[in-house]
Design a protein around this nucleic acid. Structure first.
Length: 481
RNA sequence: GGCGCUAUCGUCUAGGGGUUAGGACGGAAGAUUCUCAAUCUUCAAACCCGGGUUCGAUUCCCGGUAGCGCUACCA
């Protein structure tokens, strides 16, 4: 292990996912909190991959996590470190614990101990490991080891007393030691278990704050014992309540998307997702402040704002954040994301300049719910090949006389030398008066012909944006819808 | 089962010994009439239950209940 030479004033945090192939929502929120905390206090954020379970760890599994973090916009200062490359460290630590009497060799096979566990439980007894091997004298254990007998290393939990820690969000949490079994530190194959590798790494990497999901709350006393046995100071523990599905059970695939990438694919803007996630379990000092950019979240983030109770993932609220972000975001910033959506549907916009694209994005974005809308609902604003919503036709364009009036109107527009929002409106209203129909009738009908949709921005703004040529062509096409 | 944690509108939450219990999302109604998934206005909607402490508990304490978590040679 390296020696601790870092000033205490610089917080060191870590996000330590296991390589599950994708970044799930809960992990993303944990990562975000760590990131917000680290940035707020100008600390260091370390990424560490907990891949001690070799069977479940592949490069692709790791990549999935990184992809999720990158999309979310969470960066880190150190790492990624891989626990699989630090095995010696864990073995050494386990060895030291045996030597100091804090741990012992256990020769029970997994099957044996499981069998005895099951039996004890069946007899209504304690299902904990029966500590059989704890009684083996150290010299004898060593002899058996030297003879090549396979053994795990178990931590020797004190048989009485209690272990406590002061959690930054939950306060003091205390456990009776009798509740804790002699847990395995090092498997008989020489690989560390989670408890050993986390605390060895957290000590070695000088972590000052452990911000993680509350599912680790009950595990923490074991880790506290390890810190103590290893002679290391305790970091600040801060456990964060879990995110649940709408049915109040743990968020899982049953609830739909659990990978953050699924939200990218649904057209969610990363900033909006971050904002939404941050407010799941955290509230800024002014609780009425919900829409926040990264700067505001970083400035305001603090452990004191973290809730104790679990939160339910509310998709509706996420969509609201998303619409708010799209609306507030300048079109030029949105454009790269929108272009990705266009690519997916092979849409090549007819606009000849980015300024023109941006202007059109600005026109339609108040009605956008997600990025996909720009390639689907709003397709007609960027492409001449677009679908016409049959419901809209039914509602506004079912009358043949109206369709013909649109064609008639088109020829009026064709002759205009000016083609602005004001002039197009003037022409249409005068035309309607002539025909003795309500302007609204024509406006709604023209909307469908121009955009394929029953919902759109102000019609004349749409006309001005589309330009004279396209407006005329689409109106003339009204009889074919 | 044991242990731990939690409990305010449907959801995210604020608050806190005396409040009309606040905000946001969602919902409902209305306005606008050039559509609405835009905008504006209005409304409905909560302190889990039972004891205790107290002049007074939603708030503090205890118990219950419920939910979640942990209880692996997974992380």
């Amino acid at each position: 292990m390296t020696s601790n030479s870092l000033p205490e004033s610089i917080p060191r945090l870590r996000f330590a996912p296991s390589p599950t192939g994708y970044l799930h929502v809960g992990g993303a929120r944990t990562a975000l909190f760590n990131w917000l905390f680290a940035r707020h206090y100008r600390g260091t954020l370390v990424l560490r991959i907990e891949d001690t379970d070799v069977e479940r760890s592949t490069a692709e599994m790791v990549e999935g996590i990184l992809v999720g973090l990158r999309w979310l916009g969470i960066d880190w200062d150190e790492g990624p470190y891989f626990q699989s490359q630090r095995m010696d460290l864990y073995r050494e630590a386990a060895q030291r614990l045996v030597e100091s009497g804090h741990a012992y060799y256990c020769f029970c096979t997994r099957e044996e101990s499981e069998q005895r566990r099951a039996q004890a439980q069946a007899e209504g007894g304690d299902p904990q490991y029966d500590r059989k091997c704890r009684a083996i004298p150290p010299e004898q254990a060593k002899a058996r080891r030297d003879a090549g007998e396979a053994a795990a290393i178990r931590f020797a939990v004190p048989e009485s007393g209690g272990t406590f820690f002061d959690d930054a969000v939950f306060g003091r949490v205390e456990f009776a030691n009798s509740e804790l079994e002699d847990f395995v530190l090092l498997r008989s194959d020489g690989g560390p278990t989670y408890h050993l590798s986390v605390v060895v790494d957290d000590i070695d990497m000088h972590m000052t704050h452990i911000l993680r999901g509350a599912d680790h709350l009950s595990n923490t006393p074991k880790q506290v014992m390890l810190y103590q046995a290893l002679g290391a100071p305790l970091p600040v523990f801060a456990h964060v309540p879990l995110i649940l599905g709408p049915d109040k059970t743990r968020l899982s695939k049953r609830h739909g998307a659990t990978s953050v990438i699924a939200y990218k694919e649904e057209g969610i803007v990363p900033e909006a997702f971050r904002n939404f996630l941050a407010l799941l379990g955290w509230t800024p000092p002014d609780s009425s402040q919900e829409l926040m950019d990264d700067r505001a979240m970083i400035d305001l983030f603090d452990l004191s704002g973290i809730a104790k109770s679990n939160a339910i993932f509310d998709r509706g609220k996420l969509d609201w954040f998303n619409t708010e972000y799209i609306r507030a975001c300048p079109a030029v910033q949105l454009l790269p994301l929108i272009e990705e959506e266009w690519k997916k549907v092979d849409l090549i916009p007819f606009q000849t300049s980015r300024d023109a694209m941006a202007a059109t994005v600005d026109l339609v974005k108040p009605r956008a719910r997600n990025l996909k809308d720009f390639a689907t609902l709003f397709r007609a604003y960027f492409s001449d090949s677009f679908d016409v919503d049959p419901v809209a036709v039914q509602k506004f364009l079912k009358d043949n006389a109206v369709r013909e009036m649109l064609v008639d109107l088109a020829s009026h527009y064709e002759q205009e030398t000016e083609f602005s929002e004001a002039s197009t409106e003037k022409v249409l209203r005068e035309f309607a008066a002539h025909k003795n129909v309500k302007a609204g009738l024509l406006i709604n009908a023209a909307r469908v012909a121009l955009t394929g949709q029953g919902v759109a921005p102000s019609l004349f703004a749409v006309m001005a944006n589309l330009g004279q040529e396209r407006t005329v062509a689409r109106l003339k096409n009204a009889t074919n819808l």
